[in-house]
């Protein structure tokens, strides 16, 4: 082998070695790399008990309620399988909405209610002008209507 080829093999072996090492490290830290726990993980008791953690999911449609003091809100976080009720006192981010993503930091109390001390909005990667979003919404509603009509027509 020419010295140049020897060096090529050496560098290639080095790169492969580093790649394998990095992969192993990432697999070992898999749990720690997760930014939040889902409601299913909370239900499966995978989330820490009596210790602060982050809970992530969707705010369930129609679940948001203001408590009488006017500052505290209660809402349900869902991953379409399990649900966790969250209580939060403070200012919500502008993007916080029912049906949208959310990440809350806090602790579970004895009754299984998540007491949050920070609530962040998690938005998805879809970007479009508001008119298009509205049109899509209407299109979806129309399609749903049609489905309903169809099912009623069929005896």
């Amino acid at each position: 082998m020419k010295p140049r080829q020897k060096r090529l093999v050496f560098v290639a072996a080095g790169v492969v070695g580093i790649g394998i090492a990095a992969t192993l490290v990432l697999f070992a830290f898999q749990q720690n790399m997760m930014f939040f726990f889902s409601p299913s993980q909370v239900a499966a008791k995978e989330a820490p008990v009596a210790k602060a953690f982050r809970l992530g999911g969707m705010v369930k449609e129609g679940s948001m309620q203001r408590v009488a003091d006017g500052l505290t809100v209660a809402f349900t976080v869902t991953d379409n399988a399990e649900e966790v009720t969250v209580m939060y006192t403070g200012i919500l981010p502008d993007l916080f909405k029912e049906g949208q993503g959310v990440v809350a930091q806090g602790k579970l109390d004895g009754a299984g209610v998540f007491i949050a001390d920070e609530v962040l909005a998690k938005h998805d990667e879809t970007y479009m002008p508001p008119e298009v979003a509205k049109a899509l919404e209407q299109g979806k509603a129309a399609a749903a209507m049609q489905n309903v009509n169809q099912t009623t027509v069929i005896p």
Binding site: I18, G19, A22, L26, Q30, M33, M34, F35, F36, S38, G56, V103, L120, K122, H123, D124, E125
Partner: peptide
């Protein structure tokens, strides 16, 4: 090795940052 980790981080783990 960090570059693919950055790129795929939003796919491999739950993050606050949205996906691609």
């Amino acid at each position: 090795v960090n570059v693919p980790i950055i790129y795929f981080s939003v796919k491999w783990w739950s993050t606050l940052h949205q996906g691609s």
